[in-house]
Amino acid sequence: MEQIIEYQAHITLPENFVLIQKDEYKALKGLGFKGNCVSVEDFRKKHTCLSRPMFNELILLNPKFKKMLDIKENPNGCVAYPKGGSSGKYYILESKLLTFIEENFPEIFTYVGKNEV
């Protein structure tokens, strides 16, 4: 025979707290990067464990991805490459590059074990 005990409790949250559903929290958290334009260094340090040369090799200058990322090649891209070659300043739309890395992670990191990260 199953026994059931019901218990009711009241919990008071501090005024600076709010209770929301997990899905809503994740959606709001994702908006935190939306529209942020950052430098390569800021993005790389904040979101990857890659050195600058590996970040360039695996993502920014990788021929498989460059046309997808470059806003001159793709209106839905997320990287403004330097005008005068690789020595200029890059501009990255943070949210879009994060999404790109998440969606292409296996392809980006297929040969990392062969190279130093």
Rank of each mutant, 00 (worst) to 15 (best):
Q3M: 15
N76S: 12
Q21F: 11
T48Q: 00
L31W: 03
V18P: 13
L97D: 03
Y7S: 15
V38R: 12
L61H: 11
I11Y: 09
K22P: 02
F55S: 02
R52K: 15
I71M: 03
E24W: 07
I101R: 02
P53A: 05
G35D: 11
R52P: 02
K83R: 13
G113I: 15
A27L: 13
G35K: 03
I92H: 04
S87Q: 09
V79T: 02
P53L: 10
G88K: 04
I20C: 10
K64M: 01
G35S: 11
G85C: 02
I5C: 08
G35L: 03
F65Y: 01
V79C: 00
N36I: 09
E116Y: 14
S86F: 11
H10T: 13
N115R: 12
V112C: 14
T99D: 10
P63R: 03
S95G: 07
S95F: 09
K66M: 10
V40N: 03
F17K: 05
G32M: 14
S39G: 03
E116V: 09
Q21L: 15
E102N: 10
P82E: 01
E73S: 06
F109I: 02
E57G: 01
F100M: 09
F100P: 02
S95Y: 13
E2H: 14
F55W: 04
Q21P: 08
F17Q: 01
C37N: 15
C37S: 14
L98A: 11
E41V: 09
Q8N: 15
K66H: 05
K22L: 10
I101K: 00
V112M: 11
G84D: 12
F100V: 01
V112L: 04
F43N: 07
N36Q: 10
I101S: 00
C37P: 10
V38E: 06
F55N: 10
K67T: 15
Y7P: 08
F43P: 07
G30C: 07
K83E: 08
F100Y: 03
G77I: 08
Y111S: 06
A27G: 06
L60I: 07
S87P: 12
L61P: 07
K96S: 05
Y90N: 04
H47C: 04
G77E: 04
R52S: 10
E102T: 09
V40G: 11
K45E: 09
E41Q: 15
Q8H: 12
H10E: 14
